[in-house]
Simulated scan of single mutants.
Amino acid sequence: MNYIKHLTGFFEKVTTDYDLNPTHISLYMAIFQLWNQNRFQNPISISRDELMRISKISSTATYHKCIKELQEREYIQYNPSFNPFKGSTLNVLSLDFYTKPLVKKDIKNFINKEATLLKNSLVNEQLNEQALNKHQTSTKHVPYINNTNTINLANEQIQKNEKLNLKIEEDTNEKETQKKLREKKVIAELGRSGTKQQSIPPDKNEVITYFHEKNAPEIEAEKFYNHFESNGWLVGGKTKMKDWKAAIRNWLLNSQNFNKRPTQNFVGTQKPQPHHLQTATHKNYGEPL
C-alpha cells in the first residue's frame, strides 16, 4: 500500500467533488491517521470521540453527516456496531484509480459514472423545485423566484412595521417615565400640608409682606426675622424650621397673649405691702398671754 499515491488520488478526487467541504477533508485525514496506525490494514476499529478530537469536529450530528457522505461518495465503507461496548469498523477504499493512467475502458466507465451522478443531481433539483412550487400560496402564473421575492418583500415590510411599533412603544414608555419622575419630584417638594415647601431662610421682603397681610406692624417683622436669623432658623433652638409662615402665625399669637398680661412698672410707685395678719391693729403688749 503506497500511502503517497493514495493521498494523491484522494486530493485529485476531492478537487472535482464539489459536494465535500473542509469538514469532510478533516474527518478523512483523521481516518487516514488511524488507518496509518493500523499499518494500512482493513478493516480498522474506530472511536467516534477520537475521530472528533483529531478532526476538530465538535458536533455529533456533523460527524455522522460527514461520515455518511464520505461513504456515499465511495471514500470509505462504514460499518456501525450500534453497541456501546463494541467499536464500529471501517474500510478505507482504495483511491489509486485516480493516479493510474486511464485506459479507454476506464475513461468510459468514469464518464458514465460522472454523467449518472450529474443526471441524478439534476433530477433531485427538479423534484425539489416542484415540491417547493407546490407549496406556494400565490397564483400558478407567477414563477417561484418571484414568489420568493414577494415573500421576502412582505417579510421586510413586516419587520419594518415591527421596528416602527417598537420604537413608538419605547418613546411612549420614555415619556411616561419622564412624567412619573416629574410627578415624584413635585410630590417630594410638597410638605405634609399639601403646599409646596418654602425656602428657608425666606427673603426678608417676603416676611414683611406676610406681616402686612396679617395686619401686623413692620417692627414685628423685623423682630421675627432678626430673632430666627440669629439662631439659624431653628424652632425652639433645636428643630429646623419647615414653614416660616406658620412660624409667623405662632409669633403673632404669642405676641397677642403676651400683650394681654398686666404689666407692673415699679418705677415711681410704692412697693406692694404684705397682707396683715389676722390680729388687731393696735395690740396691747402689756396684757398677759
Rank of each mutant, 00 (worst) to 15 (best):
F266Y: 12
V267Q: 11
H275I: 07
R249F: 02
H275V: 08
N259C: 11
K260T: 07
Q270W: 04
R261L: 11
Q273R: 09
N254W: 08
F258T: 10
V267E: 15
N265D: 12
S255V: 07
P262N: 14
P262G: 10
Q273S: 08
L253H: 14
L253G: 09
W251T: 06
N259H: 04
H275L: 14
R261D: 00
Q270V: 05
S255D: 13
F258D: 08
P272G: 00
A246Y: 00
R261S: 02
Q270F: 12
R261V: 01
N250P: 02
I248P: 01
N250D: 12
R249Y: 08
L253V: 10
H276A: 13
F258Q: 03
L253S: 13
F258Y: 10
F258L: 06
N250K: 15
K260G: 01
I248D: 00
G268K: 15
I248G: 02
T269K: 05
Q264H: 15
N259F: 09
N254R: 14
N250I: 03
H276Y: 07
V267A: 11
N257K: 14
L253M: 14
I248H: 01
Q273N: 14
K271R: 05
F266T: 04
P274G: 13
G268R: 05
N265K: 03
R249H: 11
L253T: 11
Q270M: 03
R249E: 15
P272V: 02
A247N: 05
T263F: 07
F266E: 12
Q264A: 12
F266H: 09
K260M: 04
N257E: 15
P262Y: 06
N250Y: 04
P274C: 09
A247G: 07
F258V: 02
P272E: 04
F266K: 02
K260L: 06
A247K: 01
Q256P: 02
H276C: 11
V267I: 05
N259T: 09
T269W: 03
N265V: 06
Q270H: 10
W251D: 09
Q270N: 05
S255M: 09
F266G: 05
N257A: 06
G268S: 13
I248R: 00
R261P: 00
A246P: 00
L252G: 01
G268E: 07
Q264D: 14
H275E: 13
K271F: 01
P274A: 14
F258H: 10
K260S: 08
K271E: 00
P274Q: 15
N257D: 09
A247H: 05
K260A: 04
N257H: 11
K260W: 03
A247Q: 03
N259V: 06
Q264T: 13
R261Q: 03
N254I: 04
P262C: 07
Q270P: 08
V267L: 09
H276F: 09
F258I: 02
Q270A: 12
N254M: 07
N265H: 03
